[in-house]
């Protein structure tokens, strides 16, 4: 039997389905739109994105939120393709997080 991908959860035991409504945040919608633009430009495709998510460590996959996994999957792909510098991306992300404000996008 082949190794199980972390995304391949069909049939695994699990608890009750969470029924709480979680409204989508604005940045999550904007991030999806950005992903759609990257796809439309042919820079990434959906199958690559799924593969990037599957390459996360199990802890990362389980620990990240649904939209967190999307951000990390897109980031990993853009770095892998040489479109973004991974070190610079992390530097900027930490700077934004430290500043704690959405105005600091530089």
């Amino acid at each position: 039997m082949s190794e199980r991908l972390i995304s391949d959860v069909g049939g695994l035991p699990s608890g009750p389905v969470p029924r709480e409504e979680v409204p989508q945040l604005y940045w999550e919608k904007a991030m999806i739109a950005m992903f759609n633009v990257l796809i439309a430009k042919g820079l990434v495709n959906l199958d690559e994105f799924r593969r990037a998510v599957e390459q996360m460590t199990p802890d990362h996959y389980a620990g990240a939120s649904f939209y967190g996994r999307r951000v990390d999957g897109v980031a990993a792909l853009l770095v892998e393709k040489g479109i973004l510098d991974g070190v610079e991306l992390e530097r900027r992300a930490l700077a934004i997080l430290t500043a704690g404000t959405r105005d600091h996008v530089a």
């Binding site: 950005m34 990257l38 897109v74 853009l78 973004l84 510098d85 992300a93 930490l94």
Partner: peptide, 12 residues
């Protein structure tokens, strides 16, 4: 996660 998105967006 949002900070990473903002950083990615800014760089792109």
């Amino acid at each position: 996660s949002e900070a990473r998105y903002l950083a990615m967006r800014g760089m792109l």
